[in-house]
Structures are given as structure tokens and as C-alpha cells.
Write a protein that binds this DNA or RNA. Sequence first.
DNA 1: CTCACCGGTTTGATCGATCAAATAACGAGA
DNA 2: TCTCGTTATTTGATCGATCAAACCGGTGAG
Lengths: 364, 364
Amino acid sequence: MAQLPTVSDVARLAGVSRQTVSNVLNSPAIVLPDTRGRVEAAIDELGYRPHASARRLRTRTSSTIGIRLDPETNGISGTVLDRYLHALTEKAAERGLRMMLFTARDHHDEVDQFRALRDGADVDAVILTATSFRDDRIDWLVEHDMPFVTFGRPWGSDFNDPAVPWVDVDGFAGTSQATRHLLGRGHRRIGYLGWPDDWGIGKERRDGWATAMAEAGIAGDELADLSWRTDDGVPNARQIIERLLADEAGVEALVCVSDSLALGAMMAVREAGHPHFPVIGFDNSAVARAVGLSSVDQRLDQVAAASLQILFGDGSRVVPIDEADAATRHSLIEPRLVVRRSSHLAPVEEEAGSTRTGNHNRKE
Amino acid sequence: MAQLPTVSDVARLAGVSRQTVSNVLNSPAIVLPDTRGRVEAAIDELGYRPHASARRLRTRTSSTIGIRLDPETNGISGTVLDRYLHALTEKAAERGLRMMLFTARDHHDEVDQFRALRDGADVDAVILTATSFRDDRIDWLVEHDMPFVTFGRPWGSDFNDPAVPWVDVDGFAGTSQATRHLLGRGHRRIGYLGWPDDWGIGKERRDGWATAMAEAGIAGDELADLSWRTDDGVPNARQIIERLLADEAGVEALVCVSDSLALGAMMAVREAGHPHFPVIGFDNSAVARAVGLSSVDQRLDQVAAASLQILFGDGSRVVPIDEADAATRHSLIEPRLVVRRSSHLAPVEEEAGSTRTGNHNRKE
DNA sequence: CTCACCGGTTTGATCGATCAAATAACGAGA
DNA sequence: TCTCGTTATTTGATCGATCAAACCGGTGAG
């Protein structure tokens, strides 16, 4: 097979110089229309494709974004990261960007990877997920001014610092939406099943429920009696619900901090003979869709789009921090409640299109 | 900030030539130990990192593997691809390889991406998933001898063709394992809930059940009466099971082609008041783990390892097709049944470690 | 005594693109 | 007519690494 065509080959065929070919590709506006036409014809004829690595070497940009992907996905909601990745890949492709994956044992190792990726011009920016309280990776990235954005607010730091750009989903809005939906359907004693945490996401989601309840006039001790805490996981939810049903606590409906807990709750109430006891989850995971569980959707496509907007503005070149508008460096996405059977007293139709799900290996 | 150090800087500091530095990095064996020591010291002192793009330009290799990732994950089992990706990323990292993602609208577009990725030396090889019957992408890859491996057998082609390397999971073995497990626990009338397909994976998994049943002396009409077909999806399974229970068909246990169907079946039997009716699924998805559903695990880490083995042998450079041993171009992985509560008559303990699952944003 | 060959190292060319500066072509204004 | 400015295009250098060939002192065979 012959050598791959290069800019020189195209130039020769079109009767112009290399640089003109380069201009046609990178700044077509400055090339005379008919020259441009000749060059484009030559490109087509030869089937020329720019050599990405050569361009990277020269320009020191890669049009690639790095993101860490760890071995095990944990739990039903662990797939949030995966869905975010899918959305990112798609939105990135629309801008001519690509995603590159890497793994790391710990934060320190991850920082090493950052360095290698940056020094090798492998990535223009990285996306940080699973941010922890006072995350040291963030400090490193800021200090070495490597472009990045985090999915998840930098808990423990200043949310308004433009040097630490982030995108996140408004958990407060999510659970209050869910709660108001149930209030709107006439329920009053709406319980909340959440994590034990008293900070961050766990607290925020609980606050969303509490606030919506307060608006409906339920507060104080009555509210406190409707709140449960447990670690994530289907069996944990089952236990609590079974106890709760036995106690005849008078709970009419349930908002849960995650789909895992919601699924456990849903199974428990149904098996106890309450097929229409309303339950709402959080994450809108595949399971929620599959079993007809109402759930708060994180709108990961919007999260992905916002992530790229912060990093690249409207184009596909990284926006330098000093040129960025401080107001555009953070984005809190409003989630959306997806209503399904599980939150309706009367059975309703399945959401359209949810019945046929495919196996990855099946014929299209 | 100063320029990044290059091989020349290292060479100057170590008092050797550029090429020697290059040799230390790429074929350390041919460099005299003490020269190598000096060079390594210089590398450390300067914090030198090779510039990946420069290397790619020169060598036309990238140590990167491409894989297509589509926008939507469909269904509970759609996460199989994600888990494969996680495993790949990890196993690749062990060999110094990285994964790069791309999307495509259709097969034709995907082939275009292959071309761009190859021509730009962006990837050394690609991994094909969701292979279809007589897949035209495979033809293109073979014709343009671009290294690749498929996850999923090339249905409709010659499975033994060394030009079409593949890794897959033995569905037959999976369902027969599941069936034998139930037989071993004393059940005889074990039903099978599968897809309507009469080819490929769907057929193979059904055959696994049928064969195991035949070994136990159940065949012919009796066997046929125990087999159901439906499209994937929780509600579909529910419907069938509800009918089946109403008919008093005398089914004692159920093997399902997927976790979606198994989950639907499990929920239906429990809500009908049969908490210990044994159900086994396929894929060992997060949901299965969460709800205590026995399921056939695809061992995606082994699939990933086998994929890389085929492409890269024991190293991290692509094995040319003509040097490859035809016998090592295909790999059928034996899946493993993970037994949980759902397949036991008497309730047993939850699998250890499965109760606490995390949200991607939570504190570590 | 010549010469091929050895391991270890150096030198110059090269991969394919873009950058920066130089050049050519052409028209407007003095 | 000559200069100046603008626009379109060309030329040479460069990014950071590896490749291919040359080099070098030393050995052993013919």
C-alpha cells in the first residue's frame, strides 16, 4: 500500500504550497475561494486526512479530554459516571473532541497521570469526578494551571472561586420536585429515606425534601418522624420499610436519596401487599426505567454539555482562565422528575419505548 | 514556566547523545549499565517525560486502543459494555496502553472514524462491540488490515477464520451451569425464559438450558412446555410469569436469558406470594447484586484480558497478523454462576460487601 | 597485515504538520 | 512614476522524538 498522502502531496496536486493547504484546513476564510476549491478537490481526490500526531506535536494541543475510569462500578447508581461518560463522548464529538481514559490507584497516582498526559500533549484538559472533601487533586491542577472541570461541587472549598470550575446537579431541587409532585397528588405524610451523611449531597437532598414539606406546613417533630437514614443498598431499604410498615407509622409515600434505596423500598411495599404505595428514587438509572420507578433524572447530557462549555467555550480550543468570564465557570443543573408507575396510586401505562431493551451483542 | 525538558536536555546533562537517551527508554538492554544509570539520573533530575505526540509521529504507533461508545445505554444489561470498558481500561493500563473513545451514527460513519483514527496514528487497534450478523465493519477492517478484535463472535461468518479475531462468553456453558445448579438442588421442572431469537446468543443460551435438562432426562414435549419467549424487559417477564402462575403450570424454578427478564420474574413471583421461587439471571449486573439475584457472570475482566492478549500478545505492540498463531486468535470465556438468595429455597446471607454501594459523588 | 565483525555510541535525516517571516501581486494615493 | 498598504501565497525553520547509517576501538580469522 502506498504512503499516506500528506499536505505536500495535496499541495503539489493543487499547484499551491503546503501552507496554503494548511490554511484551507485551519483558517479557510483567508484563502481565495477558487484556490480553496482547487485544494479541496485535491484533498478529496487523494483522500487526504491530516496526521493528528503531527499536528499535536506542532500545536501542542490534542483536542482530547482525559477522564479517570476505575475498575469497578459500584451499585446501581455507580452507573451515573458511565452515563456521564457516554454523554461526554457524544457532546465532545460534536466539537471534534475525543475522550481518553485512564486509571489510577489513588489521588497521588492520578496526579502523576495528569502530568504524563499533559507533558505528552495527550490531553488538553481533564475532567474530575468523584470529588472528595477538600480534594488535593484540585489544588495540583490549579497550581500547575492545567485546564480542568469537576463533576461535583468542590465541597470544602469556595464554590465561587473561578479557578475551580465545576458542574453539578442541584440535589435540593431534585428532591423538592419529587416531594411537591407527591404533595400535588394529595399525599401529606411523605417520608424521606436518605444516607446518614450530614454534609454535601446527602444533606442537600434531604434539605430539598424538608423544605418542600415545610412549605406544605409539615415541620418540626412531625417532619422529623418521617425521616430515616441508612447506608445505600437495596437490603438496607427493605429492612427499614418492613419495620416501618409493621409500626403502622402512617407514612403515605416515600422520597429516596437513591434508586437503590427506592428499589428496596418499592419491592418491600409491594411484597407487603401495597402495590400502589408511591416511591420516588434518584438518578433515573436503568433499573428505575426497567421496573417503572419514578426517579429524579440528573440530565447528564446537560451536565456533559455544560462541562465542555466551561472548558472550551463555544469552540474546541481550551479557554484560558484569564480570558474566561468568572460567571460562566460554574453550572448547577436543574434535574427533572421522571414520573412512572411507582408514584401513581392508579396503575398507568409504561413509559413508551422502555419495554424493549437490548443486549449489547444482539442484532440491531 | 520554563520549557519542558526534551531528550536533548537529558542527553546534555548526562553527557551522552540523544539516541542513547532514546535507547535507555526503549531498549535499555543495549545500553551499558553505568551509562544507563547516568541517563536515568538525569531523567529524574529534570523530571523529563517523553512527548507522546512526537513519538507517535515518528513511530506511527500510539499505544492507544479505540472503542466506540454510543450515547444511550439501553436497559439493565446495556451496562455490560460499560463494565467491559472499565476492565479494558484497567488491563490496558497494566501494559502501558490507553483507551480512546469515539461515537458514530452508524456502521458507515464508524468506518470513517476508523480511517481517521488510523491515518492520524491516534490508535493502534480498535475493539468492535455489538457485532451484528455479517458485520460489514469487519470486512473493512480485514481488507485494510487494521488491527482489531471483536467482543462477540462474528455471527454469520467463519468462527475459525484467524483474520477475524474475537473474544466472547460461552452462553451455552452459562445457562447449562445455571440449570445444573437448580437440578442439583432437587428441582426438575425448570423453566426457561428467553428471547424470541432463533440464532446467535439467544439460541445458544436456550440450548445450554435444553441440553442440561436433557441430561437430566427431561426432553421432548415436557421440555417444550417449559420454554417461553419474549423480548427483553422487566414488564414482559412479569406478564409471562403472572400468566404462568395462574395456569399452575407446575414450574418449580426459572433460568432467564437476561437480568432484566429475571428481575421481572423475581418481582412477579414474590408479589404473588412465592418468596423462595428460584430465579437465575444472566449478566450479573449491578441490579442482580443489589437485589440478591443469582446470575451468570460474564467475567468481563477475563474478556478484557483476552482481548488485549489477542491484539498485543504479551507486550504492548500490536502482533502482526502473519506472525500470530492462528490458534490464539479466538477466545471463548467460560462464565461463572454467582449464587445469591434468589436461587435458594431457604433464605441465605447476603453476599458480603454488597450492601454498601456508593454514589459517584460521595465522600470516599 | 588486512578485514570483517563486535557492542556501544554518535550523527544527520526524517516523520507531517504549523508558525513566522518573506515575497509577490495589485491598486490607491501623492 | 513611485511609494505604501493590503491581500494572497510561499519559504524556511521548527516541534520532539526515532530511524538508519556511520563511527570507533578492539578481537580474531584468514
